[in-house]
């Protein structure tokens, strides 16, 4: 290798990745790395923000004042986490406006699980327990992602999210301890949210479009299948502890592997919802667009006011 290339930005970047050093905003980075990060971080941010809706659906109907306060604090956290992530994406030169625009035009995605409806109060429990549970497995892994601002946002998010899963599980515990109607409500929610939660980890490693390159760049630290396995292993005993049944006939402890074996995800269902055929796809996006549109006069007023003060 020529002398000059050892000094090249690409070489320095590669060495940093190799040495587990963080890449920081002002560093040179390959275009692909930047694009890949913006895609992943903004998708993550949009998921936090769109995820406010299915839970917000029960905010005005929470069964007790304590639950209402907890739920509002949690939804507010999701918004805050969206903010941390947008903030990380902006260090890469993608403005919030551009990111939101990409969401509205369908160029940017958000977690498909939020296209499922929250039909009963138990769904709020299931989301906290399963959806946040799955998210946190992924986010803990991302604390060691190679891009500094993303890693730091993940550290803050993980610290704050520790109560999210617990409050969801506590809702399920309460239901499981309740009467037959409440237990049925809890089981029904688990039945509907279990498989979509497993889908949150994405396609099998072999079929994942961005996985391999992301792993090489250390943006992703663990594979989809490894993370999914981790989630299943930790969640099954939690369901058993409160007498709920995981809706998977193939689920069985494999002593040799030291893991649970579980059934195959219905990828047709996954693709069906991702491609727009979930119960709430249009509702979620329309809601976000509407709020953005309704707020336009407010943002105009702020800008006009600031200009007059300047």
């Amino acid at each position: 290798m020529a002398e000059a290339s050892l000094e090249s930005p690409q070489h320095r970047f590669d060495n940093r990745i190799e040495a587990e050093e963080k890449i920081e905003p002002k560093d040179w980075m390959p275009d692909g790395y930047r694009k890949n990060l913006i895609r992943q971080i903004s998708q993550h941010a949009h998921s936090e923000v769109i995820g406010m809706q299915p839970e917000g659906n029960w905010l005005t109907r929470a069964p007790t004042l304590k639950r209402k306060c907890i739920l509002l604090a949690k939804i507010q956290d999701e918004g805050g986490h969206g903010l941390y992530l947008y903030s990380a994406a902006e260090t890469l030169g993608a403005s919030r406006e551009e990111l939101v625009e990409a969401l509205h035009t369908g160029h940017a995605k958000y977690a498909s699980i939020f296209n499922y409806p929250t039909l009963t109060w138990a769904d709020i429990g299931a989301i906290g327990w399963l959806v946040d549970g799955a998210a946190i497995v992924n986010q803990i892994s991302l604390q060691s992602t190679s891009y500094g601002p993303y890693a730091r946002a993940m550290v803050r998010i993980c610290k704050e999210e520790s109560f999210h899963q617990r409050q969801g599980y506590e809702i399920m515990v309460k239901l499981a301890e309740g009467n037959a109607t409440q237990r049925a409500m809890a089981q029904d929610a688990l039945d509907r949210w279990w498989w979509p939660s497993l889908m949150m980890f994405g396609p099998h490693d072999a079929e994942s479009a961005h996985s391999a390159q992301s792993m090489r760049w250390k943006i992703k630290r663990q594979s989809n299948d490894d993370l999914r396995q981790k989630f299943v292993d930790q969640t099954v005993p939690q369901a058993e502890a409160i007498g709920l049944r995981i809706p998977d006939t193939k689920l069985v402890w494999n002593a040799a592997r030291g893991h649970y074996d579980f059934g195959e995800i219905d990828w047709n269902e996954f693709n069906r919802v991702v491609s727009g055929n979930g119960l709430c796809n249009r509702q979620r996006l329309d809601h976000h667009k509407q709020a953005h549109e309704d707020g336009e006069w407010v943002r105009d007023a702020l800008r006009a006011y600031a200009e007059k003060q300047a």
């Binding site: 923000v49 406010m52 809706q53 917000g56 905010l59 005005t60 509002l72 604090a73 939804i75 507010q76 918004g79 805050g80 969206g82 903010l83 947008y86 809601h287 976000h288 709020a291 309704d294 707020g295 336009e296 407010v298 943002r299």
Partner: peptide, 16 residues
Amino acid sequence: EWSSNAPTLEEDLALA
């Protein structure tokens, strides 16, 4: 009722 309906994300957090 303002949750996820505010004019900016920042204001959403403030209203909450």
